[in-house]
Design a binder for these strands. Structure first.
Length: 472
DNA sequence: ATGTGC
């Protein structure tokens, strides 16, 4: 795999058969995947073979190996030119994403409150594999409402306030969800998980704004230095996982019918406008709404704890997904085209002036929420005008060691006491979970964010530091 | 990521 340096933060994989477009990796030289021991660049090249792909197969600075597509990948296909949609381009955790909430508290008030808050959250936040949820749904009919209405339905039912919807991607729900394309098995798995964190890299953190880089934008987002925040990172749990599994299987079988040849079965795909493509997009949208409702219910549980322990409310800064495909209009080849933009481990980053932004954010751009690895900083960014990858940027630190490698590397060292030694409170994390998520298993999120900024993908707004973490 | 695993 040969990389051509186009500029200090942009490398190209030249197009050669059967690639339809080049690959482009946005990263500093230091952050580039190790070509010898990592197959993610090969995956970037594989994605470039997809029917209808336009411009390039893009990789963000946090790129690493994933199912078919790399995590940290962005690929747009032209809907009007038989462009495809691929479940592997979204990932198993459909609409995994992040929301950030601000408290009416300064970090100076926290030492006296942190233990109470963390104990309250420990009790209030269901987490881990299939271990309960905040919301007990009343049968499939109500789950269908969640899949159709997302956060909007949750708020309608009293789980949140109207303002939450203005600060959620798609005003809390996408409109094209089709619960009829969600299997009974997916429903069974998702039924009891609305309002649950999950495990792996999912977390709820109490954080503080450590540094503000752009005062006017931070103010528009509702952020100030020293402010206490809560970040929630979760997705669509077993429901999204099962939807991905189901539709990959269907698409694998339909490939020959559409004459699609791909170098890796994990890139299974169908034309966006085909029955299989539309079925997947309808089910994917249902999972996207489910994930927003999930984060909304986790928000409500967190609010109850903050109200009771600290007498503080929590305002939503934003909720944005980093695993999703969306039909969007972008200028390409001199005209406006409808493109299916796959973002897998990549965050939508709308620039200032974009019509899809809520009125109070249109001048400053979309809040982009970047969770760091456990115990490290997280970032708030905003979209950059003229960004080079369909209004997308990175999504986090990006793994450099597999879960297995990380577990081996811990060698009995106590990740929990290392966090506590740095005054970060930990609740509910399994020893193994902590080992898999140790910061050494990830790239340096600060370097990732710096590369994304230098590549012109986004602009930095604020850095957040963790005070307490709740994990599965 | 995930009723970690065909």
């Amino acid at each position: 795999m040969e990389l051509v340096e186009e500029s200090p933060y942009r490398f190209r994989i030249d197009q050669r058969d059967p690639m339809r477009v080049p690959g482009v990796v946005f990263a500093s030289r230091a952050l580039l995947p190790d070509i010898a021991g990592d197959r993610s660049l090969e995956q970037v090249a594989n994605v470039a073979t997809l029917p209808g792909i336009v411009e390039a197969s893009y990789a963000m600075p946090d790129v690493h190996w994933g199912y078919g597509f790399p995590i940290g990948g962005v690929a747009a296909t032209d809907v009007g030119a038989d462009g495809v949609v691929s479940p592997g381009g979204v990932g198993f955790d459909i609409s995994c994403g992040v929301r950030l909430l601000t408290a009416d508290l300064d970090r100076t008030a926290l030492p006296a409150l942190l233990t109470g808050l963390m104990d309250g959250l420990d009790h209030a936040i269901p987490r881990g594999m299939s271990k309960g949820a905040v919301w007990q749904l009343d049968g499939r009919a109500q789950l269908d409402e969640v899949m159709r209405g997302g956060s909007r339905y949750a708020v309608e039912r009293g789980h949140g306030v109207e303002r939450d919807l203005y600060r959620c991607e798609d005003y809390g729900a996408v409109t094209d969800a089709d619960p009829g394309q969600v299997s009974e098995r997916a429903v069974q798995r998702g039924q009891g998980q609305v309002g649950s964190l999950g495990s792996g890299n999912h977390f709820l953190e109490v954080q503080a704004v450590d540094e503000v880089y752009d005062e006017p934008v931070a103010t528009a987002f509702g952020l100030r230095a020293g402010q206490v925040c809560v970040m929630i990172h979760s997705g669509s749990r077993g429901l999204g996982h099962q939807i991905c599994t189901d539709h990959v299987r269907v698409m694998e079988r339909s490939m020959t019918r559409y004459g699609i040849e791909i170098p890796d079965r994990q890139l299974a795909c169908s034309p966006v406008s085909s029955p299989e493509g539309r079925a997947y997009l309808g089910a994917m949208a249902a999972a996207a709404n489910y994930a927003r409702a999930n984060r909304q219910l986790l928000t409500e549980a967190t609010r109850r704890v903050f109200e009771q322990v600290a007498g503080s409310g929590l305002d939503l800064v934003y909720d944005v997904s980093h695993n999703l495909a969306k039909i969007e209009t972008h200028g390409y080849d001199g005209t406006q085209r409808r493109l299916c933009v796959h973002r897998k481990g990549a965050t939508r980053a709308l620039p200032p002036g974009h019509p899809d932004l809520p009125a109070d954010l249109i001048e400053v751009g979309q809040p982009v929420l970047i969770p760091g690895s456990m115990g490290t900083a997280s970032y708030v960014l905003t979209g950059a005008a003229g960004g080079p990858a369909f209004a997308s940027t990175c999504h986090g630190a990006g793994r450099v060691r597999s879960r297995k490698q990380a577990t081996r590397a811990v060698h009995g060292q106590d990740v929990r006491s290392q966090l506590e030694a740095r005054n970060i409170a930990v609740r509910g994390a399994s020893r193994r979970g902590l080992a898999e998520e140790m910061p050494e298993a990830y790239k340096d999120v600060s370097a990732v964010v710096e590369s994304a900024e230098r590549a012109g993908l986004c602009r930095p707004v604020a850095r957040l530091l963790p005070l307490g973490v709740v994990k599965g």
